[in-house]
Computed example of a mutant assay.
Amino acid sequence: MTAQPDDGTLFDAAVAELRETAFRADIAVREITTPQSLAPFAIALAADVRPDDTGDSVYGTGRFVLLHDPDAPAPWDGPWRIVLFAQAPLEPEIGTDPLLADVAWSWLVDALDSRDAIYHSASGTSTKTLSKGFGGLAVEGDGAQIELRASWTPEGPFRPHVEAWAELVGMLAGLPPGSEGIAVIGARKAARD
Score class of each variant (00 low, 15 high):
residue 43 I to A: 09
residue 87 Q to E: 11
residue 155 E to F: 06
residue 30 R to Q: 12
residue 63 R to D: 12
residue 88 A to V: 04
residue 101 A to Q: 11
residue 8 G to E: 11
residue 90 L to Q: 06
residue 102 D to E: 11
residue 41 F to E: 08
residue 36 Q to H: 04
residue 8 G to C: 10
residue 174 G to D: 04
residue 111 A to F: 12
residue 90 L to C: 02
residue 148 L to C: 06
residue 176 P to R: 13
residue 4 Q to G: 01
residue 109 V to N: 00
residue 44 A to F: 05
residue 160 P to R: 05
residue 12 D to T: 10
residue 23 F to V: 08
residue 45 L to A: 00
residue 138 A to L: 03
residue 9 T to C: 00
residue 192 R to I: 13
residue 133 G to M: 10
residue 171 M to R: 15
residue 114 S to P: 02
residue 87 Q to M: 04
residue 192 R to C: 08
residue 192 R to P: 03
residue 158 F to I: 15
residue 190 A to M: 06
residue 155 E to I: 07
residue 28 A to E: 15
residue 120 H to P: 01
residue 142 D to K: 01
residue 170 G to H: 05
residue 29 V to C: 09
residue 168 L to H: 07
residue 4 Q to E: 06
residue 123 S to F: 08
residue 47 A to F: 04
residue 141 G to S: 07
residue 38 L to Q: 07
residue 75 P to R: 13
residue 44 A to S: 15
residue 115 R to L: 07
residue 33 T to R: 14
residue 111 A to D: 15
residue 186 G to C: 14
residue 58 V to A: 13
residue 114 S to I: 02
residue 36 Q to I: 05
residue 117 A to E: 01
residue 41 F to R: 07
residue 5 P to H: 01
residue 181 G to C: 05
residue 37 S to H: 09
residue 114 S to A: 12
residue 148 L to M: 09
residue 174 G to E: 05
residue 156 G to A: 13
residue 5 P to A: 03
residue 106 S to C: 00
residue 150 A to S: 14
residue 31 E to K: 14
residue 89 P to M: 08
residue 137 L to Q: 12
residue 172 L to V: 00
residue 189 K to Y: 07
residue 112 L to C: 08
residue 168 L to S: 02
residue 141 G to P: 07
residue 137 L to G: 09
